[in-house]
């Protein structure tokens, strides 16, 4: 067993290039270790690496933990952060870990899709930025090379004025999403709808977005059509957490509810 605590990013990158397993908050990796699914013998522990814990309106370091995002993050990401696990999990888990694990149910991921965030990947030979839809390629599969670390989330400097997150799960706390959703809306009506747990990767409901973006004060019939389009566009599966049918239904309900919250804030 070999564990190193890198003092700076260079040391961390050298360790990753050397094949060591990156460990951030441990809330994913240690579950697999405890259940005998993984047995990493060489680990680079990133918990105390300040170089990847920077935080600004346009850049969130990979090592920033949910507890901080809950208080300081952009509105919909902060709302998502508050629903991640429990206080214990939010004190340990990081946004970089969420992005690196790339679970379809990752609660932080729909926000990244909704605002077209980029993922910064860094190796010994430099950094590259991948837009979210280039980065997430499948269930727990990403475009990250084995010699790279996720080092930051990069956001535009003009995030939408209105943004709302919500998720559906079997209980209120400590629950993995059955469906999670972010809706954003700008002054001019431009709307984005992003969803998690309803496809192999986070996704956007582009047809619903296009339809609703030109509507300044949507009628009841338009809102119903919006929800129907979202339900049609998602691609969920039936698994131990829910059924395809329920996820389709819930995706439409959730997206409409969040859109209405954005509209109410617009009116206020």
């Amino acid at each position: 067993m070999e564990v190193i605590h890198p003092r700076n990013l260079e040391e961390a990158l050298a360790a990753v290039a050397d094949g060591m397993t990156p460990l951030a908050g441990g809330t994913d990796l240690m579950v697999e270790v405890n259940y005998g699914q993984k047995r990493p013998e060489r680990v680079v522990a990133l918990r105390r690496l300040a170089d990847i814990a920077d935080f600004s309106p346009t850049r969130i370091g990979a090592g920033v933990r949910w507890r901080r995002i809950e208080k300081e993050g952009p509105r919909a990401l902060a709302q998502a952060a508050r629903t991640v696990g429990s206080p214990q999990i939010r004190n340990a888990g990081t946004i970089g870990g969420n992005v690196a694990t790339a679970s379809p149910a990752g609660d932080g991921l729909p926000f990244l899709a909704a605002v077209d965030a980029s993922i910064e990947l860094t190796s010994g030979s430099g950094s590259r930025l991948l837009r979210w839809d280039e980065y997430f390629v499948g269930v727990k599969q990403t475009a990250r090379r084995s010699d790279e670390l996720v080092t930051a989330i990069v956001l535009a400097d003009d995030l939408p004025e209105r943004q709302e997150f919500a998720k559906v799960g079997v209980r209120n706390a400590m629950v993995i999403s059955t469906v999670c959703c972010v809706v954003t809306r700008r002054e001019d009506g431009a709307t984005t709808v992003a969803l998690g747990s309803v496809a192999p990767t986070p996704m956007r409901a582009r047809r619903a977005e296009e339809m609703i973006s030109s509507e300044r004060s949507p009628s009841e019939a338009t809102l119903a059509e919006f929800a129907r389009l979202v339900s049609e566009e998602v691609a969920p599966i039936t698994d131990h957490r829910s059924t395809e049918e329920y996820r389709r239904h819930a995706a439409g309900v959730l997206a409409r509810r969040l859109l209405e919250r954005c509209l109410r804030r617009e009116a206020a």
Binding site: M1, V3, H5, L23, G25, G26, T27, L29, M30, V31, V33, N34, V43, A45, R47, R67, P87, Q88, I89, N91, A92
Partner: peptide, 15 residues
């Protein structure tokens, strides 16, 4: 910080 000790790699508690 409040955490679950089952999710902390023991060696990551060094120091």
């Amino acid at each position: 910080e409040l955490v679950c000790s089952c999710l902390v790699l023991a060696a990551d508690a060094e120091g």
